[in-house]
Design a protein around this nucleic acid. Sequence first.
DNA 1: TCTTCCATTGAGATTGAGTCTCAATATAGT
DNA 2: ACTATATTGAGACTCAATCTCAATGGAAGA
Lengths: 153, 153
Amino acid sequence: MEENIFRKLLEERGWRLTKQRNAILQKAFSYKGHFDPESLYLAMRGKGMKASRASVYRTLNLLCECGLVEKVGKTEQGTIYEQSAGRKHHDHMICIQCGEIIEFYSEKIEKLQEKICRELDFKGKNHTLEIRGYCRHCHAGENGLEGDSSHGY
Amino acid sequence: MEENIFRKLLEERGWRLTKQRNAILQKAFSYKGHFDPESLYLAMRGKGMKASRASVYRTLNLLCECGLVEKVGKTEQGTIYEQSAGRKHHDHMICIQCGEIIEFYSEKIEKLQEKICRELDFKGKNHTLEIRGYCRHCHAGENGLEGDSSHGY
DNA sequence: TCTTCCATTGAGATTGAGTCTCAATATAGT
DNA sequence: ACTATATTGAGACTCAATCTCAATGGAAGA
């Protein structure tokens, strides 16, 4: 039961595992992939478990500090989170048509980043690599119409 | 004079090069590096050239569509832009202590991304790679205290 | 030049994510 | 149970960004 991991991590920092925090925790981990605070909040209202918007945001921040959850990025619709406990690091492709998010991982890219950090004397803590474009389903039939081939794509 | 390039691009789309648009254009291009809409707006108020906040946001969106300017990313303080006309694509390191932004470019990383896109049948349009951490000046003297070495850094 | 038409502007209202406030409530330790 | 402290939640607040709509202004024709 992962709740115990949470409790331990929380207690190490002198935090309490309250009903609300636990509920938010459970809900966050019920998502296999990505989620945003507002959806999580609304989804919880539906069920018996409820917590205020303020608590949802507060708790998500705590979970981030614990390293159980992490911010993937900011979009027009707000911050996107995902659970990170036990998950391997990965990067994202985002379809700008349908919004699909595809995860990928490249050992080579990771290594190259480390190399560049060393070269520039930068102490990297984390990073995000986000490729925006059209997914398999959305670029079917298009003839590469508009724009911006300046990046070599 | 780059203004002519702008005018041509605007006219191609049936847009007018108004005083305000031109002023915003000039101001945006006066930045060598990154800028945000609010700063640009405030900086303009100071000078003779002025435009409303609404026009600044509207015009920056137009400039993005033209490809003259591009969104680098979203931060707590809002969207960061940079001019992209004539500039080579590059990625960013951001110091989470002092906010310094370091630009870098890696041909190898670019190529790897293209390869991964092909493999996953994803039509990449653009991307952002952002490494967060501590710059040369800010990590001096630290002993790698807190956190998150899970990414290999 | 005058007039009509339509794009553009700007002040302020509005939205929406996220944070803050603070009184009420819950919990831990004694 | 009592006290001290942590937490909660409703709603106020902040701030970026967009929207509204009356007023402005430039372009093209009469």
